[in-house]
Amino acid sequence: MAEAQALTKKDFKSDQDVRWCPGCGDYAILNCVQGIMASIGVPKHQICFVSGIGCSSRFPYYMNTFGFHSIHGRAPAFATGIKAANPDLSVWMVTGDGDGLSIGGNHMAHILRRNVDVKILLFNNEIYGLTKGQYSPTSPQGLKTKTSPMGSVDRPMDPVSFALGCGATFVARTIDTHLKHMEQVLLAAAHHKGTAFVEIYQNCVIFNDGAFDAFAEKTVRDDKTIDLRPGQPMVFGKSLDKGLKVDGWEPRIVTAAEADVWRPDTHSPGPAFVMSQMDSNPAMPRPLGIFRDVAAPIFDAALHEQIRRATSTKGPGTLEKLLHSGETWTVR
């Protein structure tokens, strides 16, 4: 791994000009991802970025790794094929709220339940950016956009709740403006064995600017968010004086001393689901960090294990064997 250790962030920048809008949250994410790539100990020719369609999906073009910019919503299927074909690759998938949860919601559900060893970064800006500003499946109800001039009547979906419902083995959330936090979360995702799903709140400066300001803006962030850290008390606030306690099914705000310890590895994803549903309650802090982190059998490894087992019991298949595999007779 000498080659990998020598890598720096610069090695992961491709020769293509980055063409997101000035001020787009995507720049911060790209910068962070290029940074952590240099530290995960994988040579860059063993890394493959896969995306669908949308602003976020241009991501692979800017990474000096292997990359596949595929079809709207279908990145999970491409990533599954790539990983199944070569489980040695480190496969990363970049998607957005429209790509990953609207047109590609079906594939997202299935890659998560299968536990394919792919790291998924879902950039959530609660808007369609590349098509120039229509509401998305995560847009809040009432959002006025070009296709919802009187306000969207759709109820939004919560990406973390969705992933948990699909049986995802690793679910986390971070913010584009909180680089240090993003770095920690992405590193944890990188080291997870199985599908890692990371929702990244990402600000669209053009069509939905300030969508997350209410809790993500730096002056309020400490009081309005809580970082779920495995094995640590659930505390938050500028001076870490507040905490969360879950009485029955409802979380409530308590003093830091009374806070429960966060466990993302409970048998049931119930606690994580309770946390994810705090989003719709403005009185509660917005949870970030690691919601879920459990071990489960990995799809791509299991596929190859079956091939190995079949080959060792039946012997490797040859053309001769293939042709003569049924009942044959000879005409002289």
């Binding site: 279908r74 491409f78 094929g81 074909a85 299935h110």
Partner: peptide, 18 residues
């Protein structure tokens, strides 16, 4: 696969991977 689309997309992904 979960549907016809994922079926061909996974196959094309696998083709990219060799």
């Amino acid at each position: 696969a979960e549907d016809e689309i994922a079926a061909i997309c996974s196959a094309l992904g696998a083709a990219y991977a060799g």
